[in-house]
Design a binder for these strands. Sequence first.
DNA 1: GCCAACGTTGGC
DNA 2: GCCAACGTTGGC
Length: 154
Amino acid sequence: MNHWLMKSEPDVFGIEHLKAAPNQTDHWDGVRNYQARNMMRDEMQIGDPVFFYHSNCAEPGIVGIMQVVKSGYVDHTAFDPDAQYYDPKSDPEKPRWYMVDVQYVRDLKRNITLKELKNHAETTLTDMPLVRKGNRLSIMPITEAQWHFILELE
DNA sequence: GCCAACGTTGGC
DNA sequence: GCCAACGTTGGC
């Protein structure tokens, strides 16, 4: 089992949206980055725990936990010309983009902010892309040690 | 295959 | 809203 962190802008799709979805489950569509795509397509497995991270907002940070409930499958929104993340280069015969389904598990007791996580960038979290400058990866693996360390901060 | 131009991400 | 960092595109 692997642990993960996934970023989303709360104004676009935040943890409140996931909580309000049917079955508190939704598909994580719109990822248009190959590294992130590969992780969803090849590595994320049902039952994997995932941190929900709010990006591009007043207080970026980890706000909750979800779990993978469906492993990688084709992101059909790439085929829809009216969809925001339409990609004409993704051919239904040879799909380029994939997604997973995630289900809400719980809110963290508080927002564990990026600022706070960065305090540990030179020690426990040194290998965590999130706390490194210029990182734009929207899905990243988290080691079990990092996962537990972060939860200890809660 | 190089690399400049361009678009996007995301913190601040 | 600014802008640094980064990924992608496309000309050559």
